[in-house]
Simulated scan of single mutants.
Amino acid sequence: MSKNAVIKAVTDAELKTKVEQIFIDIGMTPDEAVNLFYAQVLLHNGLPFDVKILNKITISAMNDTEKKIGETFNSVDQLFEDLND
Rank of each mutant, 00 (worst) to 15 (best):
Val41Phe: 02
Phe37Gln: 13
His44Thr: 04
Ile22Ser: 11
Lys18Pro: 04
Phe49Gly: 04
Gln40Cys: 11
Asn84Cys: 06
Gly46Pro: 00
Val76Pro: 03
Lys3Thr: 04
Asn74His: 06
Val51Phe: 14
Val34His: 05
Gly70Pro: 05
Lys16Gln: 12
Gln21Ser: 13
Val34Ser: 02
Lys3Ala: 12
Thr72Met: 09
Ile69Phe: 07
Asp77Phe: 06
Thr11Tyr: 01
Asp82Arg: 15
Val10Ala: 08
Gly27Ile: 07
Ile26Met: 13
Lys67Asn: 14
Thr29Ala: 11
Gln40Glu: 15
Lys68Cys: 10
Thr72Val: 14
Ile26Thr: 03
Val6Pro: 00
Thr11Ser: 11
Val76Leu: 15
Asp50Val: 04
Lys56Thr: 12
Asp31Phe: 03
Leu36Val: 09
Val34Gln: 03
Lys56Tyr: 10
Glu14Lys: 01
Phe23Ala: 04
Leu83Asp: 05
Asp77Ala: 08
Leu36Arg: 14
Asn35Gly: 04
Glu32Cys: 04
Ile26Ala: 05
Asp12Ala: 04
Lys52Arg: 08
Gly46Ala: 01
Lys8Phe: 00
Leu42Arg: 09
Gly70Asn: 09
Pro48Gly: 09
Glu14Trp: 00
His44Gln: 11
Val19Tyr: 01
Leu47Trp: 01
His44Lys: 15
Ala39His: 13
Leu42Ser: 07
Asn63Thr: 12
Val19Pro: 00
Gly46Asp: 02
Val76Asn: 05
Ala33Glu: 01
Ile69Glu: 07
Val51Ala: 11
Ile69Arg: 12
Lys8Leu: 01
Ile69Gly: 01
Asn55Val: 07
His44Met: 11
Lys3Glu: 15
Phe49Asn: 02
Phe49Asp: 01
Ile69Ser: 10
Ile59Phe: 06
Val19Phe: 13
Asp31Thr: 15
Pro30His: 09
